[in-house]
Amino acid sequence: MTVKLYLAGPEVFLPNAREILDAKAAMTREYGFEPICPGDIFIEPAPTRHEFGLKISAVDEAMMDRADGVIANLTPFRGIAADVGTAFELGYMCAQGKLVAAYTNMTANHFGRTRDYYAGDVREGSDGRKRGPDGLSIEDVEMIDNLMLDGGIRRRGGHIAVHDAEPDALYSDLTGFKECLSMLADARLPEAGRR
């Protein structure tokens, strides 16, 4: 039986989404897995945009239910953290006990990105925690993103690939994605295929 991998990430929002999704799907097949891509869906029309959004959500969950695992692109998207939809999908798969792997094309950890967001204005509060100028505490645990994402992957024996892509290739560089495929094929599923 071929292992099915759900390919989670913000690529569906890119102007060249189809090109990137096709490249990821082809690479997934090369490693002996069956890709399940959120961009490969047809959604029936709905009377309102809200109802259309609910249909997309339901179809995506059904796709994840059919998958055996996920590779999530956690490269920061529209801010300092991973795409929120991708974070949900990763959590959904973790909760089901499925195979999990993730990658990011940015080596700066979550704390570093948050510090940059505050333009370096990070102080130690009276409680010993680091805080931004707004008084909000900041995670400083040397993880690639929110500790729940990093911790959820690692507690399930998953792999996180960290790679520093060129700024114009943040969402098209597949170096980390390939590393995840290789780790899943070699370490977790030796019968799935090797490359």
Rank of each mutant, 00 (worst) to 15 (best):
C180A: 03
M148E: 06
F52N: 13
Y118M: 03
V162D: 07
A101T: 07
G79W: 09
F52V: 01
Q96G: 05
P76H: 06
L189V: 04
E139S: 12
L149V: 03
E30A: 06
G32W: 00
V3T: 13
L54T: 10
V84P: 14
V84R: 12
A81E: 13
R49W: 09
A17Q: 06
D134R: 00
A102W: 08
V141Q: 02
E44I: 01
P15S: 10
L90D: 04
G158E: 02
A185Y: 05
K130L: 15
L90A: 12
Y117L: 09
S126W: 14
A192H: 00
F88G: 00
L170E: 09
R155S: 15
Q96T: 02
R78S: 13
V70Y: 07
H163P: 12
S137T: 13
Y103W: 07
R29F: 05
D140M: 01
V141H: 06
D140H: 10
R123I: 08
S57F: 15
A187F: 11
M143R: 08
C37Q: 14
Q96A: 08
A192S: 03
A25N: 11
P45S: 06
R131I: 11
E89G: 09
S172M: 08
F111P: 05
A23S: 15
V84S: 15
G132D: 00
T107H: 10
T2E: 15
R129K: 04
D68I: 05
M27P: 02
V12W: 15
R131K: 05
F88R: 08
I71N: 07
L5E: 06
M93V: 11
G32M: 02
L74Y: 07
G97D: 06
L21N: 09
F111I: 08
L21V: 13
G112H: 13
F88T: 04
G69A: 00
T48V: 01
D60C: 14
G85S: 04
E191K: 15
A101F: 08
G135A: 01
T48K: 01
T104N: 10
R194Y: 12
A67N: 05
M64H: 07
R155N: 13
P167C: 11
G9K: 01
G157L: 02
K98V: 10
A187D: 13
H50Y: 15
F13W: 00
D145P: 07
A25H: 01
S57P: 04
A165G: 12
Y118Q: 00
R115W: 14
R131W: 03
G128F: 01
V59R: 13
A58P: 04
E30G: 04
V100S: 10
D68Q: 09
F33Y: 00
I153G: 01
G128N: 00
F52P: 09
T104Y: 04
C37K: 12
G69I: 01
M27Y: 11
A192I: 08
D65W: 07
G151M: 08
A87Q: 06
V162I: 15
